[in-house]
Amino acid sequence: MSGLDFLTTRLETALGWGRKYSLFHYPFITACCGMEYMSAACAHFDIDRFGAGLTRFSPRQADLLLVVGTVTHKLAPVLKTVYDQMLEPKWVIAFGACAVSGGIYQNYAVVQGIDRVIPVDVYIPGCPPRPETVLDGLMKLQDKIQHQKQDWRWAGKA
């Protein structure tokens, strides 16, 4: 073997690098934003280029929760359960105006932003957001993961 036989890094940096490029996401899709999620996930915009292409349909196998669409008070306990079922470390993206703030709905039915129920890492605005905005949000999350404490017991996470 010639050339590079070894490299030096910090454990935190290596873990962050590994984690940000291997996001398994669980799509929690309730509304029209789902269409935008589909175009972001499929070949045209392709979140697989960012290492987030592996969709899991069980929260137990996922580490990124994508909340895509309107969450009602009737649904809120379900969202909380899904979040609780995910293993640490885990991240949450609020996708679209409804998930961010309730969007155009301020009434008896709609939760005024999912951060009233679960913690959120990245907010993607728009009604619906364009796929470029989604990719930008994903890269912001990757940046956040890279610079997070990578304690594998996830101590100190609020």
Partner: peptide, 28 residues
Amino acid sequence: TYEGFEGHPLRKSYPWRLAQPRIPMKDK
């Protein structure tokens, strides 16, 4: 709506924007 919901939300007498959460909500 769900079990435990009080009142009828599309009545004009239902308080505007009154939500009835099923789980605790964090305030903004």
